[in-house]
Amino acid sequence: MNTSTALRRARTPLALTAALLLAATACGGEDAGGGGGGGGKGGDLKGNIRIDGSSTVAPLSSAAAQLFQAENSGVKVTVGTSGTGGGFEKFCAGETDISDASRPIKDEEKTACEGKKIAYEEFQVANDGLSVVVSKDNDWAECLTVDQLKKIWEPKSKVNNWNQVDPEFPDEKLELFGPGTDSGTFEYFTEAINGEDGASRTDYSPSEDDNVIIQGVSGSKGGLGYFGLSYYEENKDKLKVVKVDAGDGCVEPTTETVQDGSYKPLSRPLFIYPSAKALDRAEVEAFVEFYVEKHAEIAEKALFVPLNTEQETALKSALDKLRAQHTS
């Protein structure tokens, strides 16, 4: 008992001292941190590039970052997913170099950026399409009009059977699946179909995980859900895609219809917003050039629909405009 008390006596101050020492060295370490990584192969560019924004665009920017870092191992690119709005908030506060966005910048966000004197340019880097899916066992719903989709998904909708969507459809319980209310996909679908961002019925099974939606829809005969086109293409064997009629006839979501925008209203462009000021740093300039040059490879690797020739030309001229903003 005596010896153990003595031991304990010695141990406690020691532990406390150790903790304090740790804290002290940590503070000293601040300056040492953040230095460039090891040299490695190719490129002698160094520095950090910060990207944040839409979680829809994040896989695209991550793929770009990864391909870029393979050639320039001295550059550290990081991608965050604060959402399009959260990304612009950080971008316009000068905290990030590039903002990922699944919609064009809003007026109030423009004002915030102007207030901080942050100049930028809009780059469309890929296309995104949403697919409306039903179960493989569903042999009646080939094509739905935007009005029918709205009838199903609008706030306070009471539609709970397929025969309420169209009297010709069978008497089958309608089970709805969709992304959670925080996702860009939800924001986009509600805006495109219900006319107001965030306006949706709430009595559906929401999930941030598209795999859950896939399981839900494929597991119920009367199931209906929506998510990104790439998710459908990866799970073609489990689900059936529905054509959408926005007034000009039924259109199936495909690469071409998403690119040319004829698959309305569920196809959209994806953007990055590089800051003109960040071009001061050679590594950011190199990254933006890389993004523009390799856009097709990046889009393909990240499972998005690449740009068509017209969009490609627009992207190149956006880069020229950004350079002009930078030098002026």
Partner: peptide, 20 residues
């Protein structure tokens, strides 16, 4: 941490308390 800007894609380890 997500709100603070914890990153979802980062290919290097922290080197100090000022690291991302």
């Amino acid at each position: 941490l997500l709100l603070l800007g914890g990153l979802t894609f980062i290919t290097f380890n922290p080197t100090g308390i000022q690291s991302e």
